[in-house]
């Protein structure tokens, strides 16, 4: 994984190599997942502190929202890529 990631990064500078297309998409998705879920967690924690008397569930809910959002975006991007492929062929 790390090797491929490095190679993709090198190629991404100039032009994404065809075999690295999928890997790149996966990287994006993962980073997106991390960012969004952390953001959700943050919001959840803040809400739990401010409104919900430091209960745990708002934080989990926030994480869930973020992760779901990331998953959906990833799904959408993959499908879009598939559609583009169909159009090209």
């Amino acid at each position: 994984m790390s090797d491929t990631a490095v190679s993709s990064r090198q190629s991404a500078v100039s032009r994404p190599v065809s075999e690295a297309l999928l890997n790149e998409k996966w990287d994006r998705c993962l980073s997106n997942l991390i960012v969004k879920s952390s953001l959700g967690l943050g919001f959840g924690v803040v809400f739990s502190v401010l409104l919900f008397k430091r209960r745990a569930w708002p934080a989990f809910v926030g994480v869930g929202f973020g992760a779901g959002r990331a998953y959906e975006e990833c799904n959408w991007s993959l499908r879009q890529a598939a559609k583009d492929l169909k159009k090209q062929s």
């Binding site: 190679s7 999928l22 890997n23 996966w26 799904n75 993959l78 499908r79 598939a82």
Partner: peptide, 22 residues
């Protein structure tokens, strides 16, 4: 060799594959 590995990973994809199928 590299390409073959990548292709093999995507060998079982259906049409309109989402995250789960990938």
């Amino acid at each position: 060799r590299v390409v073959a590995g990548e292709v093999r990973k995507a060998s079982l994809l259906p049409e309109d594959a989402g995250v789960a199928s990938h």
